[in-house]
Nucleic acid binder design. Sequence first.
DNA 1: GTTTATAGTTTACAACTGTAAACGATACGC
DNA 2: GCGTATCGTTTACAGTTGTAAACTATAAAC
Lengths: 160, 160
Amino acid sequence: MSEILNISEAEWEVMRVVWASGESTSQQIALVLNGKRGWSQSTVKTLIGRLTSKGYLQARKDARRFVYTTHLKEPESLKLEVEGLLSRICSRKIPNLLAYLVEKTPMVAEDQAMLMEVLRNKQVVAEVPCDCYPGQCTCHLHASGTILSNHSYEENTYEN
Amino acid sequence: MSEILNISEAEWEVMRVVWASGESTSQQIALVLNGKRGWSQSTVKTLIGRLTSKGYLQARKDARRFVYTTHLKEPESLKLEVEGLLSRICSRKIPNLLAYLVEKTPMVAEDQAMLMEVLRNKQVVAEVPCDCYPGQCTCHLHASGTILSNHSYEENTYEN
DNA sequence: GTTTATAGTTTACAACTGTAAACGATACGC
DNA sequence: GCGTATCGTTTACAGTTGTAAACTATAAAC
């Protein structure tokens, strides 16, 4: 439920195993990550320990070992990460980035139809405000109180 | 042109200033980031130094100061970052994440139309292969050689 | 009951990050 | 010409991350 995630790249690998299996022992996790990344059991245990103290994993004692679970959900986590990234560019440029992603993401017809539907139902606004701090975006060079329409893709920088 | 970016969060703030202005002195950068993040000139100079040694900024001497520019382009950089993030989940789930992003991104009618167009022209495939390492995804629990259609959103986890 | 395997905890350590003070060079003002 | 403002460079230092060995506890095996 926390708004900011503190899961490092390596820790994410551990989370993925727990997300996929619902619950795992350190041994199971180590097995997967030894295969995928060549990590030793020690390494995996360190990562589990860090995730546990950060509160992202819960440990339930089962006989002599712990079984790890998580309350955090994978889709939520990725949404937070992606939103964090998108906050690095001007809001006005995000639609172009999305266009790029739609183009390059392999999908089946159902995906395409679903996205169409989402798009069709999308409420649009008259203007997307530039949310950049002055000096970190060129929007303010053009705008000056008047409404600008499609400024953000005069240079369609996110298309490939 | 490098495939993997090594620009930290704080360094990204510096890059944004250079991207926005085309070229900047350390003073200009420090001014913006002192305003936005409260950073001292020292801090900004350290970041500039690191970006320069990493090769992301170029310094051209102009009279007694340096003017910093970059060859790296902002859209390319963000694409790389986003693609890195997307590689953290199963390919099959990406369209649902995109649906979520389309829903939550504010956009004007032109954006909507452009995305529609991109979608309409999109080449779809018969099946999106699961690219996960075994144990990090549930796809392989279902598949076993046969073609699966819309498995990836049986639980439409990326819609909100 | 003593060895052995297995699980978890502690310690380690280098690289990278965030944040900044201190230091050194150099040009400008007077 | 000499102080002073301004750059850039060096040094600092704590926190996070990647990666793992060493140590400890405890249960299973015989």
